[in-house]
Write a protein that binds this DNA or RNA. Structure first.
Lengths: 236, 236
DNA sequence: ACCTGAACACCGTTCAAGT
DNA sequence: ACCTGAACACCGTTCAAGT
């Protein structure tokens, strides 16, 4: 009822620092994620970091899901808000890039996507920016939502796959399974993959985010019949 | 060394059925995932399903990651291979749809992406099909890889977000946090999102995979300078 | 109000032993 | 070769109790 999460951060007592606060918890969680990577962030590990009992955490945070949400919140809130270009089309690109930027700072993105979605309070201004730019480009409200969703899917997928890749490169205990699969390829059945096998790591480690994003946007601008039945913009 | 995973399934003894086999394990795992959803698939739960000790599993499967890979393998191997259209452009769409289809059958996609990538043996023919079609469309090898990657990112992101959505709708203990966030929106700061708030669930539950995919492909066909520096197709 | 201790119901995986 | 039992080092979370 008074879950207090969406709006302001809530009242802050001024008495003594009271040791443990939501802010301190988030900061410690951030530190763990940054230094040991996502996956090391457990409630118990976090409690150890703060030299408290695991259960003390639950007094400031509902559960692990809320903790992850709060981490994303802080990233989104602290994201610098660069001036937006005047040209609508460029503004759309810039807004999409903003979404990429905030998610790129979240190594726990996979867990966020697995348990929540991106509609968390402090992210909304980024989504709003995408919608605004899309509308300024002449899209209808519904088309703008479709465009936002396509951008979010593309961005989320790219980051997730990139994060996984980097995690693997970091660990590199055993060379990835992919290498064995590629090595066992037969030219008769997989001619193009065989031709590419040696270049695959190099080709797939490139950052092609912007190229793909531009293509996606370009496609939306090109097709006049983007979403099938042109429903009216504001249904009753 | 003789890890035997990429190639054939390996020799099969004919003596007695020997009770436990990799096939039986995979089948049971599939059953658990289908009936109780991903997340219920633990080694211990799987052992219970098969009425054996958890450790018996490790005699047929290296670890949980390999199990997930094998699940994806089976899905990919059993994916029907529809006849491909003659037109290269349509073939590209069909191949991309194939990738979507195989991943759509994997509720454990999130865990796959978190620990492996999609380059598992039986998936390769789908990737090969995408590359083939892209080359037939006139793209260079490198451009084809970029195109494949964009498709994979878009597809992975879409499915992951859709899976999460459905999981939430299934559980629906507490209404999603998103609802609270949307309700607390202020029209001054988020006018377009406010205007959309009521329609958001309906708009975001639509299946817009094909529309977005078409836009993405369209964009790649439109831009002549897709990937910046036009490197030669086959470097030494 | 804020924190602790003990407990519940789980995990993946290793190691030594059984047949 | 194939499986079991016991153990290790973890999880998130609840519940009752302390101050």
């Amino acid at each position: 009822m008074r879950s207090s999460e969406p709006g302001t951060t809530g009242r802050r007592r001024v008495g003594r620092p009271s040791q443990l606060s939501q802010e301190a918890i988030i900061e410690a969680a951030q530190r763990i994620v940054d230094e040991e990577g996502d996956g090391s962030l457990s409630m118990r590990r976090l409690a150890r970091e703060l030299s408290i009992t695991p259960m003390a955490l639950y007094h400031h945070v509902r559960d692990r899901d809320q903790l992850l949400r709060l981490l994303l919140e802080t990233k989104a809130r602290n994201l610098p808000r660069p001036p937006m270009p005047d040209d609508p089309r460029e503004r759309l690109t810039a807004a999409a890039q903003l979404l990429y930027d905030v998610l790129a700072e979240c190594p726990f993105l996979g867990e966020i996507l697995a348990s929540e979605d991106l509609m968390t309070a402090s992210c909304l201004w980024v989504i709003e920016a995408v919608l605004e730019a899309a509308l300024a480009c002449g899209f209808t409200l519904e088309e703008a939502v479709g465009l936002y969703r396509a951008i979010a899917h593309y961005t989320g997928g790219e980051l997730l796959i990139r994060l996984t890749r980097e995690r693997h490169l970091a660990h590199l205990d055993h060379p990835p399974y992919r290498a064995r699969a590629l090595a066992a390829l037969q030219p008769q059945t997989h001619p193009r993959l065989c031709a590419l096998a040696d270049h695959w790591p190099a080709l797939t480690s490139r950052d092609t985010h912007r190229a793909g994003l531009q293509a996606l946007l370009e496609g939306f601008f090109q097709s006049p019949d983007r979403s099938g039945p042109q429903a009216p913009a504001a249904p009753a």
